[in-house]
């Protein structure tokens, strides 16, 4: 099996996996970073969202070749101690019900706010439309993104 060098949360990692292995499963099964979740495997639900060079991407649909030389950030690497303003807003609003989708929601929201620090409600809704929350905590997700924007501003 080929060996890949990837950069995850600031650290270089060597992984020895089949070339078709999605980044999601490299993170979860090889690097023990289980915060990134498996929901659908086809890029439809957003539970596996990570940042690749700062852009939110579906790790279930990314191969290692696609992230070669790029920097991956997962929910574990968003902050040392959960202090990122988006994580803080999630706590302030008490968003989760079951909580399974929330890492993906937070990663989508974080990348979005990097590019659009003062979004309108409509822009937030559009940005978060790709992430399913089966418990339907949507109104709190929206509120938390707006709260984070306010706190970051």
């Amino acid at each position: 099996m080929p060996t890949y060098q990837i950069k995850v949360n600031g650290a270089s990692k060597t992984v020895d996996v089949a070339e078709d292995t999605p980044v999601l499963w490299v993170l979860r099964d090889h690097l023990d970073l289980v915060g990134t979740k498996y929901g659908c495997g086809i890029g439809q639900c957003g539970a596996c969202t990570v940042h690749v060079d700062g852009t939110a991407m579906r790790s279930c649909s990314l191969t290692l070749a696609q992230v070669d030389g790029k920097s991956i950030t997962t929910i574990e690497g968003l902050s040392e101690d959960g202090s990122h303003p988006v994580q803080q807003a999630w706590k302030e609003v008490d968003v989760p019900q079951c909580g399974y989708c929330q890492a993906g929601q937070i990663m989508t929201a974080t990348a979005f706010l990097e590019n659009n620090p003062n979004p309108t409600e409509e822009e937030v809704k559009n940005a978060m439309h790709g992430n399913i929350c089966r418990c339907a905590s949507y109104t709190r997700i929206k509120k938390a993104v707006l709260t984070a924007a306010e706190n970051m501003g």
């Binding site: 915060g35 968003l78 989760p96």
Partner: peptide, 22 residues
């Protein structure tokens, strides 16, 4: 109001769910 007792683990991606168990 009492915030979800697992909020820190959920928002930082700590192992918590069945799929995370090893």
């Amino acid at each position: 109001n009492a915030t979800n007792v697992d909020i820190d683990k959920i928002t930082t991606g700590k192992p918590l769910f069945g799929l995370d168990y090893k």
